[in-house]
């Protein structure tokens, strides 16, 4: 029963949620709303769990003096101060919005903008026309990179009597090969998700119970 209970539960809930999608019946609508309410409650609890897990992880690091353990003080101090400042001064006044705008946002922006430097360096080193495939990727990347910025508008000309511009080539690449590939992936993912959901509902897939075989 320890294993059959969750399988039966998954089957019943899965079937009910599947049926509710196709019927306007008030019972199923009410059930659907209750499930959505519970989903939010469960998710709220995961925040408590996540916060507790973060605190415990960093306290352990400090206790064991693991590599860079001093940074854990910064994490815990940041967490504690943000929670306290939001509790004391609310999120609209006092240090909370100031810290958000002047510490968190610049730090996040800085981390992300570093990507431009690393991408430039990495693409210079890795983008080599070693094989036919690599050359194709290189050419496609170069065309889209130039075609997606205003400077690309300056690259146009006549090829075999046809007026063509880099912007048009770039748009075509995004609208045809890119779209076709993405749609294929999406259909595959959709079918895979449906198959996995059915396997869970029917009790064939049991890894969520901790079974790995």
């Amino acid at each position: 029963m320890k294993r059959q209970g969750p399988i039966i539960l998954a089957f019943v809930v899965g079937m009910l949620m599947m049926i509710q999608f196709f019927t306007p019946n008030p019972f199923f609508l009410s059930l659907y709303n209750t499930v959505l309410d519970w989903k939010q409650v469960v998710l709220g609890c995961t925040f408590i769990l996540g916060t507790w897990s973060l605190i415990r992880y960093h306290l352990t690091r400090i206790q064991r003096k693991q590599d860079n353990w001093r940074y854990s003080y910064v994490t815990l101090a940041g967490l504690g101060f943000m929670v306290l400042s939001a509790g004391i001064w609310k999120t609209t006044t006092g240090p909370y919005p100031w810290l958000f705008s002047n510490v968190q946002v610049p730090m996040q922006s800085t981390m992300f903008s570093l990507l431009a430097f690393y991408v430039a360096s990495a693409s210079y080193r890795a983008f080599r026309a070693r094989t036919v495939h690599a050359t194709l990727l290189l050419v496609a990347g170069a065309l889209v990179m130039l075609g997606r910025v205003p400077i690309g508008a300056y690259f146009s000309g006549t090829v075999f009597g046809v007026e063509i511009s880099l912007v048009e080539i770039s748009d075509w690449m995004l609208n045809v090969p890119n779209l076709a590939a993405k749609r294929g992936i999406m259909i595959g993912v959709g079918l895979g998700t449906t198959a996995t959901a059915l396997k869970i509902i029917l009790g064939i897939e049991q890894t969520y119970l901790g079974r790995t075989d």
Partner: peptide, 8 residues
Amino acid sequence: HALMLVFI
């Protein structure tokens, strides 16, 4: 973008 292409 142009600079990255020059480097490449």
